[in-house]
Design a protein around this nucleic acid. Structure first.
Lengths: 148, 148
DNA sequence: CTCCAAATGCAAATGTTTTGCATTTGCATT
DNA sequence: AATGCAAATGCAAAACATTTGCATTTGGAG
């Protein structure tokens, strides 16, 4: 089983051949709670605040191994040059990014299955996935901008 | 008019309030010829070869001003950490990336207009655009992998 | 409890992108 | 065509994000 759905962390780590460490638990918990993809630095800072002493390179290494084990995916085709990370879930969603305040919000339902099949036919690629990000102005920023 | 379609460079620069410089012409030409988004470094190296002496920071600055004037859009692939740049065209396309050899190929036809409208309704965002990347194995890599 | 490979922390190295500043260039104006 | 000035450029250094080397610590198998 590839995805992080309903499983306790220890069981998950063991099934992936990973040691069950404090740091990995913390990072995984943060990612589970997160509603949007997080940068390595944000993870590092959040854990610093929660007393935990983790080093930034450990955060990167944990994310790297999580990716290798298909627990996490890199996400964000985005503007800033920071890589963001999120859990690899079965139910896949996309992100709506406010171009003004940069707020990120998840959008469920993805209309691309049929499209992938069509592209597969047209290009002879064997399609394995896609990333989609949608940009626009969130309701709050629309109001702010209208006032000017 | 926002997009780079049929216009000579000088006219385009003037209409955007930009000086018509040798470097900007070279960068714009390269982007016009490119079939896939280019990194700043690739642009720099290609121009070096073509005798032109440009500095890497100038490449970055030109790309920055082209983005500000809506001539260019960033289109970073999440896999590598290099930002890529391509012309902002009216006819919009997406990219198909081989997860094995990293080859990039454009896909025309985009099925997302209706979806954008639906998301707009659902979220009250005012949608301005999206980025889509599709991943898979290209025909050549499929063959190579089958052999093993 | 012991032991060893795997995980971690820290500092230094890398690779990409940005910035400061002195010099050059495009172009509007004589 | 010559002049002046803001904008553009080159180069070196700075700023970031990410990765790596190495000495130390830790999880968990035996």
């Amino acid at each position: 089983m590839n995805c992080v759905d309903n499983k306790n962390n220890k069981e998950l780590f063991v099934s992936k051949g990973l040691k069950n460490t404090k740091n990995r638990n913390h990072v995984l918990e943060l990612l589970k709670e997160a509603e949007v993809p997080l940068t390595a630095e944000v993870i590092y800072l959040k854990l610093k605040v929660l007393d935990t002493n983790i080093s930034l390179s450990t955060v990167y290494r944990i994310l790297e191994v999580f990716i290798a084990k298909d627990l996490v995916v890199k996400s964000s085709l985005s503007e800033d040059n920071k890589t963001r990370y999120e859990l690899h879930k079965d139910e896949h969603s996309h992100h709506l990014v406010c171009v003004n305040c940069k707020k990120i919000q998840a959008v469920f339902h993805c209309p691309l299955e049929a499209y992938e099949k069509a592209v597969e036919k047209e290009t002879e690629f064997n399609i394995t996935g896609h990333k989609l990000e949608i940009y626009g102005y969130c309701p709050e920023c629309q109001r702010i901008i209208e006032k000017h």
